[in-house]
Design a protein around this nucleic acid. Structure first.
Lengths: 202, 202
DNA sequence: TGACTTATGGCACACTGTGACAGAAAGGTT
DNA sequence: AACCTTTCTGTCACAGTGTGCCATAAGTCA
């Protein structure tokens, strides 16, 4: 990894951190790209080379999470019920956060607080989730050997899984820690599994 | 209803229709507000007085749908399981479409085709849905006599209901008719109910 | 060092969305 | 009818996001 790549990654994180702090301090809408860029001594034009949009700052986590979910999903035994596999994939995302650097964990928590305070951003997040869902449906349908356009159950399995994840992610405590969120998520998963008919996902 | 009100409603629908047609014809992103306003001989500034944003055009249906759902929900017996009530609320929305004017049905179908062709707009739609969900959670939690911040089940019930609705709404046929969508939705509801433990929603 | 590749900054630009104000249209009153 | 009031509309100016384009600076490799 050359100097160039390291420098790019550093700039990327500097922008992200500056943005998260500004957002939490003075709100999302009232923070301009110019301010964010200014805070890390970069031109606004360059900002848009690192993040395709202001919104993308909030979604940076999703890109990573989606990747982990797809990887985990493909590593699960093919005969495991799809919903169970998806729950494992979801847990893998949280385990990844737990195992990451303190800086990354802090970014994760700041983002969570940000989402908590700005409903509009939750909308952004679920919209991005819908995109992930479409990809997950492809995988789930393939595993079940059905056509994703025809099989409603594949859609329902992914949809139920993804909203279980969302419900678990909403933690009532504003300053929740990572383990607290994990525990909350585990509770939600358990609740969802108790609510569903055994074998409903084949 | 005076001339003023009638004229406003006419302009509103004219803008909506022009926009839907332009979107379907040349895509959402590549249609500008100026074009839409121009097509109905109105200034761009006036456009924004009828629709707070370009996105709002796509969400006009949700405002109405949310209203119907909240109304229906409050008219259901208080001891009915929450998920069942929500499924009734959802059906009420479709029944409203079925019972509306041919023009309104056509708008509904055009919107559906638009969503089908533009994944980004689906994101918008689910983001708006998240907003509705928050309101529904309030009602459901109140009915169940629990604190919405503490009770995960209320959140899960609403989340499952709303994604059942979304799955049912996605119809594989691009040029589906209203009855076809209704039938599809009924199938999805049945599938969801079969997948859930009896009494899971208390 | 020099040649090559890639990142950056600055500029012009298109588009969305908002506040402010002046004039036009609609509604009501005598 | 004339008049006043309320509400809608267009125009203008402006802030902010996001994109192409090009010259320049910085990193890479010989």
């Amino acid at each position: 990894m050359g100097l160039r790549e390291r420098k790019k990654e550093k700039t990327r994180l500097a922008i992200l951190d500056a943005a998260l702090d500004l957002f939490l301090e003075q709100g999302y809408e009232s923070t301009t790209v110019e301010q964010i860029a200014g805070a890390v001594d970069v031109s606004p034009r360059t900002f848009f080379r690192y993040f395709t949009s202001k919104d993308h700052l909030v979604l940076w986590f999703h890109d990573h999470g989606e990747e982990i979910m797809l990887e985990t999903l493909s590593s699960r035994p093919a005969d495991e019920p799809a919903f169970t596999s998806l729950m494992h994939a979801m847990r893998a995302v949280l385990e990844d956060v737990e195992g990451s650097t303190p800086d990354d964990r802090e970014r994760f928590l700041k983002l969570r607080r940000l989402l908590d305070e700005h409903p509009r951003l939750v909308g952004l997040s679920v919209a991005r989730g819908a995109q992930t869902d479409r990809r997950l449906v492809e995988v789930v349908a393939a595993r079940r050997g059905v056509d994703p356009d025809e099989d409603q159950l594949s859609h329902l399995i992914v949809a139920f899984a993804s909203c279980t994840m969302r419900v678990g992610f909403e933690c009532p405590r504003r300053d929740a820690t990572v383990p607290e969120i994990s525990r909350r998520m585990a509770e939600t998963i358990e609740l969802a599994e108790r609510s569903l008919q055994p074998g409903w996902d084949r």
